[in-house]
Simulated assay, not measured.
Amino acid sequence: MLQRTVSGWAAHDSSGNITPYVFKRRENGANDVIIKIMYCGMCHTDLHYVRNEWGNTMYPVVPGHEITGVVIEAGSNVKKLKVGDRVGVGCLAASCLECEFCRGGEENYCEQIQFTYNGIFWDGSITYGGYSQILVADHRYVVVVPENLPMDAAAPLLCAGITVYSPMKEGKLMESSGKKIGIVGMGGLGHIAIKFGKVLGHHVTVISTSPSKEHEAKHRLGADAFILSTDPHQMQAGKRSLDFMLDTVSAEHSLGEILELLKVNGTLVLVGAPDKPLQLPSFPLIFGTYNPSLLSPFSD
């Protein structure tokens, strides 16, 4: 199997440190494109893998799955992409392409899914991510970046963006405006969710443990309201006020008090990925008839 030498950054153990690393990528195949990487977002998933917090890291690991760049070589079977195209790659590198999910455009649910890094490609090679000079990617998992979208701004949309966009779409937030939605946490996922919520015409409330984030939430990102989740009075005042809520927090926390912010028959979608089980008291569910929806951070 032909390979090419690439420079990048990798973690070699669970210390959390990444250092310069020279490794091998496969040569361009008939279905592949080679992408010169221009930008790569930093996703909290990168931290989970670097630190082996999910227990499945294959060291050395080169993180990064919010990748934008320019095609510098295209395989013989690639018809929709050409050299010079501005493109992006998210967290998926391969799937079976034959199951009901792959045929239905939902490759993320395929049981044979492989990721852009810390995965095993079809040829048996280990996948390495975007903290590197170039990426060799199957063209079926590459998207075109519109000319009017800056490449640096596009990169975070390829994981964080789609992770919050997908449940908003499934929750029918595109169909009508004026809903009261809550965003729990204001990190990489949360700040994008706030922007999407406002663009879609909804009333957005941020729920956070950090009082210092209130000014940024309201004055920089345009949130309509802010609830400090460690303040019992604010939580009580917000009880049963929200139609829809996205929980973006990746740390261990309880869902009980958060659920009580929802209206009866409201919807909570979990898009964070804590490494420990979350606390889910039964009474908020019983008395609110809520619709908890648990989604992977790879829900694109």
Rank of each mutant, 00 (worst) to 15 (best):
R140Y: 04
D13K: 10
T19D: 13
V269E: 07
S177F: 11
E27D: 15
K36C: 01
Q112T: 04
H203D: 14
A74H: 04
A30S: 15
L270V: 14
S14C: 10
V22L: 09
A155Q: 06
F101E: 01
H139W: 06
R86Y: 10
S229K: 04
A74L: 04
H65N: 01
T230Q: 13
Y49Q: 10
E216P: 02
W9Q: 11
V142K: 08
P284N: 11
G201L: 12
Q3A: 12
S282V: 14
G8V: 05
A154V: 10
Y165V: 09
S210V: 03
P284L: 08
D32W: 00
I35S: 01
G130Y: 02
M174G: 05
I34V: 15
A154H: 08
P297V: 14
I134K: 04
G190N: 05
V70C: 05
E170L: 11
G182S: 04
W54E: 11
L97R: 15
V62A: 04
F115H: 05
Y141D: 07
V50G: 01
N28A: 11
S177T: 13
S296W: 06
G272A: 09
T289H: 14
P297K: 03
K218I: 15
L200A: 06
S296M: 09
T267S: 12
R86A: 14
D275G: 04
Q112P: 00
I227E: 01
L270W: 07
S299L: 13
S254V: 07
V184N: 00
D123R: 03
F196P: 00
H48Y: 03
N291D: 12
I286W: 09
A193Q: 02
E147S: 14
A237F: 00
L221Y: 15
S177K: 13
S125M: 09
M186T: 02
F101T: 00
A11T: 08
E257S: 13
N52F: 12
T163K: 07
R140F: 06
A153T: 10
P297I: 13
R51C: 12
S95V: 02
P150M: 08
Q3D: 12
V144Q: 14
E100Q: 11
V269D: 03
R86V: 10
M168E: 06
L242Y: 03
K169W: 10
G64Q: 00
L135T: 00
E27L: 11
M235C: 10
N118T: 06
C40T: 13
S14F: 04
L242T: 05
I120S: 05
V61N: 03
D13P: 04
Y39N: 15
P277Q: 12
P20K: 13
P284S: 08
I258L: 15
D247P: 07
G129I: 02
L278V: 14
E147A: 13
V199T: 14
V61A: 12
G238F: 02
H233K: 15
K239N: 09
L81D: 09
G201W: 13
V145W: 01
F283N: 13
E66K: 05
V71Q: 06
P60Y: 11
G161T: 09
T209E: 03
F244K: 05
A94C: 07
V78G: 05
E216S: 13
H139M: 10
A137H: 04
G182Y: 07
L135E: 02
V33Q: 06
G129N: 03
T116D: 00
R26F: 02
V249K: 05
G29C: 08
